[in-house]
Amino acid sequence: MARYRTIGVIGGMGPAATADFLGRLVAGVNAASDTDHPRVLVDSNPHVPDRNAAALTGADSPGPALAAMGAALVAQGAQLLAMPCNAAHGWADAITAAPFVSMIDAAIAEAMAHQPRCIGVLGVGATLALDLYGRASPVPVLNGDLCVVQPAVNAIKAGDRSDAVRERLAGEAARLAAAGADVVIAACTEVPLALTQADVAVPLIDSTAALARATLAAARLPDRVQP
């Protein structure tokens, strides 16, 4: 049976994406019983200052709220922190209370396993404005059209996972592939709630799933040596 450090989740951005991440953590454990799973502490806080407004208009920074959430989770016993929100990684440097698993690095690592010459990114305003994937990627990055992706993400946040929303995202992924992207990253945690690999002709990297896998790998403790 694998043993894990206690995981703290800085979430709520948005709540449905956080719930999806928690489901990925559960699914990612080869569990035979409840006790095979890691302990997970969650702060799902939908009132963190808006990441897009902070990056695009200079509104209140989410950094202090993220730092406080991380510190509170550690005070409750978290030994490792993860944050299922791509855009909030623009302020990840504020999270210093415990080792932090980067969603950006996890998604780039999975994208690079496909040996792409170019990566397409379906992200929202802060993610693109702060060039989070461009700064992390060793190959060129093509950003999706914010005028397509942002309204689709807003719709998903409002509970709309209709074919119309999925088709808009699929169309933008197809445009990126036609422009030279060998891999497309679903670089907003709402995107995988509507868009799947079946909708995209090139490999689609689900940043939520990538973070879940990276978090479990980082949290896993070494196996006990048998006497």
Rank of each mutant, 00 (worst) to 15 (best):
L56S: 07
L56V: 12
G58E: 11
G58I: 09
G58P: 06
A59S: 13
A59H: 07
D60C: 04
S61Q: 09
P62I: 03
P62N: 05
G63Y: 06
G63Q: 15
P64S: 10
A65Y: 04
L66C: 06
L66G: 06
L66M: 07
A67H: 10
A67K: 11
A68M: 08
M69Q: 14
M69I: 15
G70A: 06
G70K: 09
G70L: 06
G70Y: 09
A71W: 05
A71V: 07
A71G: 09
A72C: 00
A72L: 08
A72P: 00
A72E: 14
L73V: 13
L73T: 01
V74Y: 02
A75C: 09
A75G: 13
Q76W: 10
Q76I: 00
Q76L: 14
G77V: 12
A78W: 03
A78E: 12
Q79D: 13
Q79T: 05
L80V: 01
L80N: 03
L81I: 05
A82P: 02
A82R: 07
A82D: 05
M83V: 11
M83R: 07
P84T: 03
C85E: 07
C85S: 14
N86W: 03
N86E: 08
A88Y: 00
A88I: 10
A88F: 00
H89M: 03
H89Y: 13
H89C: 02
H89D: 03
H89A: 05
G90S: 11
W91N: 04
W91K: 06
W91S: 02
A92M: 06
A92T: 01
A92H: 02
A92W: 06
A94P: 09
I95G: 02
I95S: 07
I95E: 09
I95L: 12
I95F: 12
A97F: 09
A97S: 15
